[in-house]
């Protein structure tokens, strides 16, 4: 379960995040939505332990996996990238890459991939690991609709297998509606409301 109390992040005099209270139950999938600069990435980075808040407390289940918005390709091939830090996962990696339609690129240099391919590769790197909390920062932003569909299907499969909690930020109404149980709206750093219930369309009301 994620518990956030009085979480505040400030750069100089500019407040970029202000979440008085947030609670996400175990196994839930919450979509963070909001305009650019609304604090989605800041919240995810704080929960991932990559950024220190100015004030406030939070607790997250461990281990946590985090997919940053800007994906980085390590040196080596696509397969080598996916297998970094794993043991005996070669077969799993091959079938995962097959499902994600990256199999033809297995031996290709990861740094030569397109933006969408790289985003799928970065996502695959996480899917081979276990976690109880998965944080995804705009995971489909560089993907076309077909690639986004593949990625979201894989996310559902992973979620079902792991039973993990998922927090993902997105600008896409379709993505939020497809995978999220509910949505958290962020505007000017403020978490304003939890709008929709499971299975319903998310309501969007940007300030």
């Amino acid at each position: 379960m994620i518990e956030v109390t009085g979480l505040h992040k400030q750069y100089g005099t500019r407040t970029v995040l202000d979440v008085p209270h947030l609670s996400v139950e175990r196994g839930a999938c919450v979509a963070l939505i909001g305009a650019n600069g609304s604090g989605k990435t800041t919240l995810l980075r704080i929960l991932a332990g990559q950024l220190k808040p100015t004030s406030g407390t939070f607790s997250t289940p461990q281990p946590v996996l985090y997919l940053p918005q800007r994906c980085y390709a390590f040196r080596g091939t696509v397969l080598q990238n996916v297998l970094i830090g794993t043991k005996n996962k070669r077969e799993d990696a091959l079938s995962l890459l097959e499902r994600m339609e990256l199999a033809p690129l297995l031996q290709k240099e990861a740094r030569s991939l397109s933006g969408g391919e790289l985003q799928r590769l970065a996502f695959c790197r996480l899917m081979l690991r276990d976690c109880t909390l998965l944080l995804l920062d705009e995971p489909t932003s560089a993907c076309d609709s077909h690639a986004a569909e593949l990625l979201l299907q894989e996310l559902q499969r992973y979620r079902a297998a792991q039973g993990c909690t998922v927090l993902l930020s997105t600008h896409s109404r379709a993505v939020a509606a497809q995978v999220a149980d509910r949505c958290l709206l962020l505007a000017n750093g403020r978490a304003s409301a939890l709008r929709s219930e499971a299975g319903t369309q998310c309501e969007f009301s940007f300030d």
Partner: peptide, 12 residues
């Protein structure tokens, strides 16, 4: 920064 964010995000 990019290497760090990605590698830490992978739980390494």
């Amino acid at each position: 920064a990019g290497i760090l964010e990605t590698a830490r995000g992978m739980g390494l």
